[in-house]
Design a protein around this nucleic acid. Structure first.
Lengths: 218, 218
DNA sequence: AATTATTTTTAGATAAATCTAAATATCCTA
DNA sequence: TAGGATATTTAGATTTATCTAAAAATAATT
């Protein structure tokens, strides 16, 4: 059984290890959780003693099989709750994260089973990220970055890479949402920015930074 | 802002003070929370410093106005979640308590506003207890104990006094549920037990202890 | 390769929530 | 009302999660 804080560390470390594919450094963990390196050292010792991380002094940590299972269950709960908040309680996609951060630690297997059922077994959360099943299995949609679409081609918005609130609010404002059909009308060589048409209607300009942050169908 | 533990203490103390109407003793609190008296002393010092309790050494505590407001908001969240679990997730009324104990501490006013809306502003929880509104206002249904019904009279099951799981499971088993119409067919002088007909159909015998634990319409 | 810079760990403290054991206050009863 | 029984508080520890500052290890650079 993991504590609230332990679950948060494990989840963060799992995400970091997915991003980099390598062992995760103490400082990277400290940054992502807004804590100090010393606190991280203490915690990773505890988590490796519990068998969810493997840790070599001065050389970072990797997530064990057992740790991955546990992390995926937390992520499952997080994404189910986000789905609940958006689908049932009419939250915007930029309002769900903080609340789901709390809800993901509620401990009740019956609750999650029933919630999943109530939501009709969703496969993806409101940001397009896959929801692991009870066994931790999930499948990401085949996807490429919006920035890689060539002029004239079309894609469906699938998810965002970094789902921080101000970015999501910006997308909302310009009219980009999950499932929107986007067509690349033009691209500027100089700065990589592009002109995009949403649902054959609204035309917007987005920077390369924004396009790089959006996944579309391949 | 109250911590998880502080909220639990405050809620328990509020309930105890409602039951007795007097100041609440250290031991009574310790019993109801399964902790030790020494822990309670520490906590009530902290809570009275925060202004939610008033405390006189060796003479117990009372809940302040500010404390009552805070306690009622926790109770509001608890009962809204219980309603959600039963109405939407198909929990049985004996399965909701432990989960609601966790959910009641989730901190998000938007969440509670939307949950209330989603549940269509319920006035009573699955055990028949009133749900306080955003201002802490609530009204209990006029009610008497089932044991006080005279032979031949009829009542509607409104709520239970002590909603511990084994009691609720017992009620389920014999067919008593919230909203059921009950008619008292007979009462035994000797031990106070009675013969009850549920919904003009099933006839069951219940002890005085059980009847004392059930509220019906007056 | 030697030195500097960076990262990580250790040592020692702190705050929250809990406990046991001892001290003290209040209650009750003979 | 005096003294024992009960209730409450204090003192001192423990666990968890944090921190700062110092020490140690690793990485980078000239």
């Amino acid at each position: 059984m993991l504590s609230y804080a332990e679950e948060n560390y494990l989840k963060a470390i799992y995400h970091l290890s997915q991003e980099t594919g390598e062992s995760v450094s103490t400082n990277a963990i400290a940054d992502s959780l807004n804590t100090k390196a010393a606190s991280v050292t203490d915690m990773i010792k505890k988590l490796s003693k519990k068998g969810v991380l493997s840790y070599q002094k001065y050389h970072g940590v990797t997530v064990s099989e057992k740790g991955e299972k546990a992390a995926l269950q937390v992520i499952r709960k997080h994404r189910l709750w986000e789905t609940f908040l958006v689908d049932k309680l009419k939250f915007n996609w930029d309002e769900v994260h903080e609340v789901a951060e709390q809800l993901e630690h509620i401990n009740s297997s019956l609750l999650i089973k029933r919630l999943d059922e109530f939501l009709a077994y969703p496969k993806y959360d409101p940001h397009g990220d896959p929801i692991p099943d009870e066994n931790g299995e999930f499948k990401a949609k085949p996807q490429i970055g919006l920035a890689e679409l060539t002029v004239g081609s079309v894609g469906i918005i699938l998810s965002v890479k970094d789902s921080n609130n101000s970015f999501l609010q910006y997308l909302d404002k310009i009219g980009i949402y999950l499932g929107a059909k986007v067509k690349v009308l033009d691209k500027v060589e100089f700065d990589g920015s592009s002109e995009i048409q949403i649902d054959n209607k609204k035309i917007v300009f987005i920077s390369k930074e924004v396009a790089d942050n959006i996944w579309v169908t391949d």
